[in-house]
Design a protein around this nucleic acid. Sequence first.
DNA 1: ATACATACC
DNA 2: TACTGGTATGTAT
Length: 881
Amino acid sequence: MGTKIETVTKSRTQLSRMENGAESIKEGNFLSRMALNDNKAGMEGLDRDKINKIIMDTSKGSRFYESELKREQQVNQRIEKMMLQKAQITEQQLKKAQTQVDKMVSELEKTCDLSRVIVHVDMDAFYAAVEMRDCPELKERPMAVGSMSMLSTSNYHARKYGVRAAMPGFIAKKLCPDLVIVPPNFNKYRAVSDEIREIFSDYDPHFQPMSLDEAYLDFTAHLEQRQSWPESSRTHRYRSQSLATDEKQTRLHQEAEVTDLSPVLFEDSPTSSPSLPGSGGSTGGAFEVFGTSVEEAVREMRFRIEQKTTLTASAGIAPNTMLAKVCSDKNKPNGQFRLLSTRGAVMDFIQDLPVRKICGIGKVNEKMLKALGITTCSHLQQQMALLSLLFSETSWHYFMQISLGLGSTHIPRHEERKSMSTERTFKELSKPEEQFSLCRKLCEDLAEDLKKEGLKGKTVTLKLKNVNFEVKTRAQTLPYPVATAEDVFAVAKDLLKMEIENESPQPLRLRLMGVRISAFISVDDKTPMQKSILGFLQPGKVDCGRSSQKIHQNLQKNPLSNPPVQASQPLGHLEVQNSQKPKEISLGRRPTEEEPQQSFFQRAHAKRLQLMAANSSRQDEGCRDESSMVNLALSKEDVEPSTQPRGDDCADLDFSENKSASPVQPQASTSSCRTQTEALTCPVCFKQVRTADLNVFNRHIDSCLSEAAGKPNRVSGAEFDLETEHQKSKTVHKQSREVEELPVNGEELSRSVPQEDSPKNNSVPKVLLSEHEQKPVTLQGHQSGPVLICPVCYLTQETDDLTIFNRHVDLCLNQEVLHELRGQTTLSIKPSVGKNSKDSGLHLQRHASKSKNKRTDTPSFPPSKKPKSLGVCNTIDKFFR
DNA sequence: ATACATACC
DNA sequence: TACTGGTATGTAT
């Protein structure tokens, strides 16, 4: 193990030299990411090398393998950097660090609390055990729960072959051809989980579940009470054997009742020592009396779990969570381990404990530490000074706590969730329409989940993984929280669109997509929310609502693990952010007094352009010309904040996209293309503005927008005439079609020019988006009949009647336009595409509750009134960030 | 605030 | 054929 560094360095060199470096690197250490993770229970004494060879042989050459190779390199580089840093550390520095560390150690030691009894319970091979219980034939066989693609758990028999959780099934099959793979049944696991949690709560009503099969409990209070409990309260009977395998529900029900009664029933039982099964014989089941000690209490709990579920659990008992967790693994399966609550016992226990066993130290940290010669906790302790110089503050503080055997001594009450997401892996998805459609689906799923918990979040994050397993996330934070599929999708699709457009070479080939929402507002934040808006309106002030609150919470939460760092840093961070804000704003258009603030849409687009501009300047080959709308439309100066002194704007950036769909030659250089356009189509009134000057054009749009915003029913909460709106949008739509010289593009508007209607477009070099957005796509698959994806809403439409489909698209389009004009309001589409759809085809619906919410929960958006107090009216960003 | 990486189950 | 999905948090910019 001492030659690790050398090996690491060598591997990297070899890698950079050869494409398929796999063969040349022989064994073990290389690709530690992929190698068998044998530090879990049931994996001792395996033929590691043989198993790893099979794993490697099976994976070699796959995209996944290549991707892992790459990541491995990155880690190796990180390690190299670290080693370089280490080499530059002087004795002096080290000494100084050591005194710092010593000081801190003695302070930390003072905080050590050994008075609590923390228990970590963990079901043994949970999913697999449930399946085995319910299908006894599986008991004698190696089996795993999951699929050919991925396993969640394996039973102990399978583990002997190296088959374990997080291993793909097809590799597991190579390791163990007889392996039985059972698809997961989460509802069942959840039901069992409920059962065990019921038991947990008897010992600690505030227990913290970590997953379906795992929890931390604070036994301290229970043990105090337990000392005075009569034996009857510590007596539990065995489940009757005959009911072991069938009629679970009935049995469980009965069991629960009997268990509850048992203390009374057996109060007078003459059992001082645990009775064996059968000793209670005649009354129909044995029982067992448990003592008052910790061990007995935990054993009792495990016993009850087993009786109730026919599944076994393991447990760890220790003075804090960190240790309890390690302990629960010690005698797995079906065992428990108690670490005595004395300083000596803890330190002894810690000494030779591999760092990898500690929750929070994973593959990467293990490897980095190993590079420093640190594999056990005692090494950690010895090297603290060095670690304090090489790792971030949070990291080395954490290391230090570990090295002292410290951890949480209380079970934190379950915190509110911070994010919610949904993601999906699929074959390969390369068609933009399908990608958008999927994106919408994900947003719908997410919205459904959000609804269940009544949450609204401000940050939407799109996650993409391409077929090479490269992961990307793109996020956008809104000034107001959203929860509906429409609102989330409005953001996500923009983020997605951006990635689709920017991909080179085309197309974007996805294997996974996910949507996440975060930055929730919570019930108790609603009032602060109001305040924070006021806070925004006072320049120079930090968001007074949430952030400071959070920081405060953090401070109180764990004074041990995150001392001043958390307190000072985020605050400073916020201030900096705040003061930097104007920089971003320079991109945005300065609204005039009367005009409405920019829609999110506009801002998002401006941002996108900014990013694109940054992008194109990076890849100066201009290689994206054929695919990028931006390059066709804009010179870099148009979006570069530094070269754009005036309050120039979003709107023109936004709509400059129009030109991308216009007959611009693909070879056009970024600067030349601009002159080719002499007229621009206003996205509001849809008239052409004969100018190449974006400022002039912008002024025009400004006035249009103010006019649109001036319409009384746009601002008031009053019901408006749907029919009128509908008609109007129809008209608008029609107009947009008539103006053919310059197909409207600005975002959704681009879709207002279906291909059939604009023959010119056919001669235009296809820009990806205009292409796919104008053409309905036929999906084969699940449906029997043809399915079309609406290029506007991305909902699949089960029809092959193009007339009907077109009507849907038209109506969608109208909705989009309206939506945009009124600033993300309240209309939702109810697409009706079936044969029975009326002429109207679609009904614009006003969601009363939703619109109410919009106005009350998010008073700011759409802004009912503008903050007049601010002399300089910048973009909306300024107010809300 | 955003992107990416690490970690855990 | 085939290498997850959900959440939190750390690190870096």
